[in-house]
């Protein structure tokens, strides 16, 4: 069905005990989009992201990827097709960098030669030296670890990338650098990316569409420029007012010189 969006969430709802986390969230994402999922802590954005690769099963609603319900077929097959990078990263400490990056290709049965070539390619892609392949995760800096995490997520050439606060623990300089580097990869590899972040500035600068999730419902869904002009929901206005106010104060500082 050619008219179907690449990824479609339909009335996805989830409760945690008696507490509702998601209220029938629906979202359609065309291929090639870079969507930022923003909202305060506890707004349900991580839960929503994890329903897409079935790390969390919703209580009701459905998710369709490329026209097929994701519940068709076993979970592990689905997950091998989807890149996933998160704040915890979770590099396997007993494997070196090359083995970490090659983990999904190995599960998919790639040959050793194909895996080695892909590892070299990916190290280059995330701007790490080739000799990092033999390093252990505990010898890497935070930024390097995160780059390896992204390389691992990209290894099996997924078309969909799910990212959960991927740069959350990095210093501002590395964070900005890695964010832009990833955005370049997204464009170059023709990816569809959904990135959870609570940093509205990061979302505005990286994404081409921002979905604001507050208390388990979508309160706004717009391109960055439109969102800056948004008027209506006071919670959303408050969220976007902050980076704008900061920008104005920074501009005033520059003018005052």
């Amino acid at each position: 069905m050619a008219n179907d969006p690449f990824l479609e969430l339909h009335h996805v709802a989830k409760d945690l005990g008696a507490r509702p986390i998601l209220h029938a969230v629906s979202l359609a994402i065309p291929a090639g989009s870079f969507v930022a999922l923003v909202g305060p802590s506890g707004s349900g954005k991580t839960t929503l992201l994890k329903t897409i690769n079935r790390l969390i099963e919703p209580d009701s609603g459905s998710v369709r990827l490329d026209g097929t319900d994701i519940n068709v077929g076993p979970k592990h097959r689905l997950r091998r097709r989807i890149g996933y990078a998160f704040q915890g990263i979770g590099l396997f400490p007993h494997m070196n960098v090359a083995e970490n990056i090659g983990v999904v290709p190995r599960l998919l049965g790639w040959t050793e030669a194909a895996r080695a070539a892909r590892v070299a390619e990916l190290l280059d892609l995330v701007a790490l030296p080739a000799d990092f392949a033999a390093r252990r995760p505990n010898t890497l800096s935070g930024g390097q670890t995160q780059r390896v995490g992204i390389a691992r997520a990209l290894a099996a050439r997924p078309s969909l990338m799910l990212m959960d606060e991927p740069f959350g623990t990095l210093d501002p300089v590395t964070r900005d650098e890695l964010g832009r580097a990833y955005r370049a990869l997204h464009d170059r590899l023709d990816l569809t990316t959904i990135m959870v972040t609570h940093d509205i500035t990061e979302a505005l600068l990286l994404a081409d569409r921002i979905v604001v999730l507050i208390e388990g419902t979508i309160r706004a869904d717009a391109a960055p420029a439109e969102l800056l002009a948004y008027r209506g929901d006071p919670a959303v206005e408050a969220m976007i007012a902050l980076p704008q106010a900061q920008a104005r104060r920074l501009a005033a500082l520059v003018d005052a010189r």
Binding site: L55, H76, G90
Partner: peptide
Amino acid sequence: DPAILEAADAAGMTGRQRLLQV
């Protein structure tokens, strides 16, 4: 570390693969 287990799941390991490899 739960992050490592989540990474193993998200990579698409089956329960058995996660047990034996991680």
